[in-house]
Design a protein around this nucleic acid. Structure first.
Length: 191
DNA sequence: ATGACGATTTACT
DNA sequence: GTAAATCGTCATA
């Protein structure tokens, strides 16, 4: 994931994500086809950026994945800082009491948005054409056998959607927000 | 108009 | 481990 800000380049390797699979998913903002000003960008074309504000203080970001009017998205949960680490650190330390380890700069959905300067203005951006924010192939592709899956984080609704294995990440990576408990390899295709 | 809550993070005991 | 921070959003009335 690459971010241009103030003429400088920041980049991080995506090491953790969660899937939000649309109108049937109780934990998804578009559950039951709910369409509001907040989640409007979920209904746009694949490659659209969906940024939302939560807990009165945090932003989190998603990549929209479905067809137009099919509100499916992937939450970006953690990055391994690669480029522009000093700028990331500045954004994070500014609001912080103690200096941060590099592995903590982007190890959470709100942390990475803070580090990359992602907030309300970035909601609805087209990641395919934007000069300021895009996703490109990693220098080295992850091996499927190194990808773990597990339940999504912070889903409170007591039903099957809280336990489905829709969080994915790189095995034992130090920048993951929460460790994967059981050793479950990701399926070839997430259903 | 109102109130309950949230796809989180941080500090403190 | 527990709790506070902090406010936009949305369902309900």
């Amino acid at each position: 994931m690459v971010r241009m800000l103030a003429g400088q380049r920041m980049a991080g390797r995506i090491v953790e994500t969660e899937a939000y699979v649309g109108v049937r998913d109780r934990a998804c903002h578009s559950f039951k086809g709910r369409r509001t000003p907040r989640n409007e960008s979920m209904y746009a074309s694949a490659g659209t950026f969906y940024v939302y504000f939560t807990y009165g203080m945090h932003f989190c970001c998603n990549v929209v994945c479905g067809e137009v009017d099919e509100p499916i998205a992937v939450l970006i949960r953690a990055l391994e800082p690669v480029d522009g680490i000093n700028q990331m650190r500045t954004h994070r330390d500014n609001r912080q009491r103690h200096a941060l380890r590099e592995t903590d700069l982007c190890s959470g959905p709100a942390r990475l948005c803070q580090a990359l300067g992602i907030a309300r203005p970035e909601n609805g951006l087209d990641l395919i054409t934007s000069p300021n924010l895009w996703i490109e192939p990693a220098s080295e592709a992850a091996r499927l056998r190194d990808i773990r899956c597990g339940p999504r984080i912070g889903i409170s609704t007591g039903n099957v959607w809280a336990t489905r294995l829709l969080r994915f990440g790189l095995r034992d990576h130090p920048c993951i927000s929460v460790p994967f408990l059981a050793t479950r390899r990701a399926p070839r295709i997430a259903s």
